[in-house]
Every structure is written in C-alpha cells, then in structure tokens.
C-alpha cells in the first residue's frame, strides 16, 4: 500500500462524505429506516419480557436488514447517476472500493448506534453488560458494512441490482449475524452465553471485518477493470462532455 493509493482512497471517502453532507438524502433515508425498524421491534415486544437471546436476535435482524438496504445504495447510486466511469478514472478500483467501504462503515456505525439506543429505550430492555452491547453493535456494524460493500460492488451492471444485492448479501452475512447475536445476548444478560464465548464472538466479528476489508480491494481490479482502457477514456470523455445547447 503506497501513499498515493491511500490518498486516492481517502479522496473517494471525502467525496462520499461531501456529497452526502450536501444532500443528506442517504443519511435521512438510512436514519428513517433505523427508526422504523426500532419502532417495529419495540412494538413487537410491548408489555413483554422476551428472552435476552431473542432480543439479541431481533436487534441483529434489524441491523442486518438496515445494512442490506443502506449500504448497496452507496455503490448503485454511482451507476444510476452515471458517475461510475468517472470514479474509476479518478482512482484505482481497489482504492475506490476501499474509500467507499470506509464511508459505508461510518454510515453503518451511526445507524447501528441509533438503532441500538432506540431499541433499548422503546423495548424497555434491561442492559446487563453495556460494554458488550456497545462493542457488539460496533463490530457488527463494521462487519455488516464491509461485507455488504463487497456485495454492492458485485452487483454493478446487473439486472435488478437492488434486489440482487440483498439476495447475495444475506447468505454472506449469516456468520456475522450468528456472532452478533451471541455478543449482543451477553449485553442483554443472557444466562446461556458466557463472557468467554462473547469475547470469541467479538474476535470473530473483528476477523470477518478484516477478511472482507482485505478481500474487497483485492477483488476490485478484477471486478471493475474488465473494460479496455480505450473504452474507459472514451466513456469518461462522453460523461464529462457538456451539452451544446
């Protein structure tokens, strides 16, 4: 990894951040989705005291569907706005994917934070171990964001890509959801899960995050570099050309 590559990745990250801060559309929709899921889950547990394992499963399911809905947008929007070719011309595919992965992790961490706080409040959940709850939500968000980013990158150019991103993403996220449930259950005070297995689950989530964070940029040149360079240059010229009238 050289400094030019890292600079390109950070440039892509800054571009994502600025474009998001300009419209705030993605943040608003993501935030609304997080609130809706939390309200729905809170309503489902109204006047009940569900098992901590069940609560952890519910929160994990919420995080899972939030990731499937929010993260692919970061990639698919480029193609729908016609700026994907420009992005590829601006940075190496691996740096572009890494920059977008970084941005998606930030967005997912914020979403997971909002969802977890709302879920705890609305469902009147007793938090037995706040550290594990926070760490569980944090590492789940990281793992979900990195793996869904790869799925978002995979579906570019496909038919029905919004639907496809979810379809290929959910099976890929199953290990994350299992480990996340174990970890969050410790946070909610499950007697079934002990501290050592929760620590194992945390390490597993960190490992999955690292695996997808490393795998994404490695696969990106093969994924996004399939067109000849001449076509790319021509496409960039066409996409940046101003209309004459």
């Amino acid at each position: 990894m050289n400094s030019g590559w890292l600079e390109s990745a950070l440039t892509v990250f800054r571009k994502e951040w600025r474009s998001e801060m300009r419209s705030k559309h993605g943040l608003a929709v993501g935030g609304l989705f997080a609130v809706l899921i939390s309200v729905a889950l809170g309503f489902a547990t109204k006047n009940q005291e569900p098992d901590p394992m069940l609560l952890a499963g519910m929160l994990t399911s919420g995080l899972l569907f939030a990731a499937v809905t929010i993260i692919p947008r970061i990639f698919i929007a480029e193609e729908e706005q016609g700026t994907f070719t420009l992005l590829r011309a601006m940075a190496e595919p691996s740096a572009a994917l890494f920059g977008k992965m970084l941005y998606s992790t930030i967005q997912m961490i914020v979403t997971a934070g909002v969802m977890t706080a709302l879920f705890v409040e609305l469902a009147h959940v007793r938090v037995a171990d706040p550290l594990f709850l926070v760490l569980g939500a944090f590492f789940s968000a990281l793992s979900l964001a990195t793996s869904m980013s790869l799925c978002g990158a995979l579906v570019l150019g496909a038919a029905n890509r919004w639907l496809l991103a979810g379809a290929i993403g959910l099976p890929l996220l199953l290990p994350t959801s299992v480990l996340s449930t174990l970890c969050l259950a410790q946070g909610f005070g499950s007697g079934v899960v002990n501290t050592s297995s929760s620590i194992q689950a945390l390490v597993g989530l960190a490992g999955l995050t690292m695996a997808f964070l490393g795998l994404g940029p490695l696969l990106a040149p093969g994924l996004w570099g399939v067109e000849p360079a001449d076509n790319l240059t021509q496409d960039v010229a066409e996409s940046t050309e101003q209309p004459s009238s």
Binding site: S147, L150, A153, L154, P171, L173, L223
Partner: peptide
C-alpha cells in the same frame, strides 16, 4: 462478478 462472489463465499 461470479468469480469474486465465489472467492468471497468461501468465508461464510
């Protein structure tokens, strides 16, 4: 895309 997914699905 299929090649990348084949490699990625090895993890789960």
């Amino acid at each position: 895309s299929s090649a990348a997914y084949s490699i990625a699905l090895l993890i789960p």
